[in-house]
Computed example of a mutant assay.
Amino acid sequence: MSYNLLKGKRGIIFGALNEQSIAWKVAELAVEEGATITLSNTPVAVRMGEISALSDKLNCEVIPADATSVEDLEVVFQRSMEILGGKIDFVLHSIGMSPNVRKKNTYDNLDYNMLGKTLDISAISFHKMLQVAKKMNAIADYGSVVALSYIAAQRTFFGYNDMADAKSLLESICRSFGYIYGREHNVRINTISQSPTMTTAGSGVKGMDKLMDFSNRMSPLGNADADECANYCITMFSDLTRKVTMQTLFHDGGFSSMGMSLRAMVQYEKSFEEYCDENGNIIYG
Rank of each mutant, 00 (worst) to 15 (best):
E50Q: 13
I51P: 00
I51V: 12
S52Q: 12
L54N: 00
S55P: 00
D56P: 04
V62I: 15
D66W: 10
A67L: 15
S69W: 03
V76W: 01
Q78C: 07
S80A: 14
E82C: 05
I83G: 02
L84H: 01
L84G: 01
G85L: 04
D89A: 13
F90N: 02
H93C: 07
H93L: 04
S94N: 10
M97L: 14
N100T: 09
R102I: 14
K103E: 14
N105I: 07
N105Q: 08
T106E: 14
D108Q: 14
N109L: 11
L110Y: 11
L110T: 09
D111A: 09
Y112F: 15
M114T: 12
G116Y: 11
G116F: 06
L119A: 05
D120I: 02
I121G: 04
I121A: 06
I121W: 05
I121C: 08
A123L: 05
K128R: 14
K128N: 10
K128W: 08
Q131P: 01
M136K: 13
M136I: 11
A138G: 07
A140G: 06
G143P: 02
A147M: 06
A147P: 04
I151K: 01
Q154W: 12
G159D: 06
G159P: 04
Y160N: 11
Y160R: 13
Y160Q: 12
N161D: 07
N161T: 06
M163E: 07
A166W: 02
L169K: 06
L170N: 03
E171G: 01
S172L: 07
I173M: 01
C174D: 07
R175E: 03
G178D: 03
